[in-house]
Design a protein around this nucleic acid. Sequence first.
DNA 1: CGATTTTCCGAAAACGTTTTCGATTAAGAT
DNA 2: ATCTTAATCGAAAACGTTTTCGGAAAATCG
Lengths: 337, 337
Amino acid sequence: MVTLKQIAEELGISITTVSKALKEYPDVSKKTRKLVRETAAMLNYKPNSFAVNLRTKESKTIGLIIPEIVHHFFSSVIKGIISQAEKKGYLVITLQSNESYELEKKQIDLLISKRVDGILISLANGTADYKHISEVLNQETPLVMFDKIAKAIKCSKVTIDDRKAAYKATQYLIDIGCKRIAHFRGPLLPQNSIDRFLGYKQALTDNNIIYDPTLVYLLNKMSFDEGKFYANQLLKDHNDVDGIFINTDLVAIGAISEFNNQGIKVPEQINVIGFSNWFMASVISPSLTTINQPGFEIGKKAFKLLYKEIKDRKKKKIINYKNIVLETDLIVRESTV
Amino acid sequence: MVTLKQIAEELGISITTVSKALKEYPDVSKKTRKLVRETAAMLNYKPNSFAVNLRTKESKTIGLIIPEIVHHFFSSVIKGIISQAEKKGYLVITLQSNESYELEKKQIDLLISKRVDGILISLANGTADYKHISEVLNQETPLVMFDKIAKAIKCSKVTIDDRKAAYKATQYLIDIGCKRIAHFRGPLLPQNSIDRFLGYKQALTDNNIIYDPTLVYLLNKMSFDEGKFYANQLLKDHNDVDGIFINTDLVAIGAISEFNNQGIKVPEQINVIGFSNWFMASVISPSLTTINQPGFEIGKKAFKLLYKEIKDRKKKKIINYKNIVLETDLIVRESTV
DNA sequence: CGATTTTCCGAAAACGTTTTCGATTAAGAT
DNA sequence: ATCTTAATCGAAAACGTTTTCGGAAAATCG
């Protein structure tokens, strides 16, 4: 591995001059600059990033913690983050919390130890207290949250308006004539499922439909099988339901599968709307009407915010945290009339 | 940020002793070791990894280059790699080549510049020459390939036996009574689609079924829509096909969708087998019979090989490259009788 | 031609570790 | 008491870069 020293010896000049020449300092003559550049290229010189890091105190690396990698939405986010980071010369270290608070804590520690320049995180479902996050903030390490956030923490965030999106979905069901609209909701944590439930409820009351709690089913694992299970349950409990807004595409697909099996026609007998717009939703039949959750965009925006904060901190600027809320679209497909 | 120096001053001993105490050197007394440990903990000391890297010449970080992140198989691989790496104290930097040779080259350069301890890579479809890979190997940087590999390169590899898997799939179609079996194959690069085609062909001839080239369709983008398109084409060209082995689940799902639309019963009229076992395959209807490509396992094994090579190189051991070929299973579902 | 400015270069310190090797002290042996 | 050995510590070099600051040489000016 060739070093500045070797280039210096090769040319009979000092290390200092070589270093400055390569960084285009104005106080080294154009002639030597060129000379240094050429021999550096010839020797295939690559700066030792360990030394650079030590000297400059930054690694041009950020950490990313997500609950689950094998997941259409999150992998889209990762892609958005990485694509944007690469443009700015940043590399990203990805970690998976597996929805576990304990792991999340360890991983934050790991990243801090590695001295990443910043952290991007979507909280695990299991995370209820935020000491580990506060510590990061105290250490002056930039951090931005996305999707599954903690409202109480003072930092930049990028999310969608779950409540509004859910409202939009429910309103659509109402608009196409549904009178009895059920909802499969998620657990009490994270906030997202609460907001989606609230949006659903709000849409009902705004349209003078009385909210019936028995039409709301609380799922825990949010799996395909749970979708099937509760679809079956729903059919037993209520024979008059004509529309259903479901917290997650995967569950919705499970429900549709169950409806198919039982000979219930979607959308003729029951209209189904999912949430997230997983790729899957477009290829099943009937294809699923759903809310598009722009993962790639969320990732890009999250990185941009983090990048700005890193830069601002370096310039000792005061940083004002932003709260970006991305728009969601209702994507109408075959599961609604 | 607290350093060794600060701990040393706090205790009135030398930096050397502090460092050695923390690393449990036997030449520092148990008493001081304990003392140092305690004050280090009290001051919340975290070694500066930049300095450690510089000194030890290793970063405990590996690079990972994959063609596409938003992809069930690859994200499973990532998960496998990260989970295993974490256990061994390694962090992983993920990059996406987007199936582009140029990008792949740049990213390899980037990782080398960052001085990762090793590289894991699945080649882009666009890569035909391997100079960039050879360079890595020349630099003595451990590298292992997985899934989309270059047979010509001397390094460890982990793959599945595409040919055998395809043979298995085709044989199954024959076993359940199919007489006219079509195949949707992938492009000429990477090797995988060739091998799968070869496996298909072999199974036919081994069963005394004459190979009919008009039953093989070469797709390029391997998309859902292409699946639909060629399914339609197949129906026009041949009315006697009773089974089809398709290179990729996504295409297979497209084909099934087209068959559904045209009122062709799967599996009664046409049996369909896919490849990869994307999650999607289990939730569509009819659910898809397919070959399970164990992404998570591939990732784990790939990291383990890389890890071993990193260790061996440090010990100046001679390294013998391994070629791990993982078993695949045929997962029978509703798309075959 | 002397004075002043500009241009160009390099010495040296610093970043925070790790590790070698020699020094000092304490303990044990004679 | 002296000598040997073991136990404990620290000085210093090294990893490869960046950057400050001062100095020498060259160019400009009066």
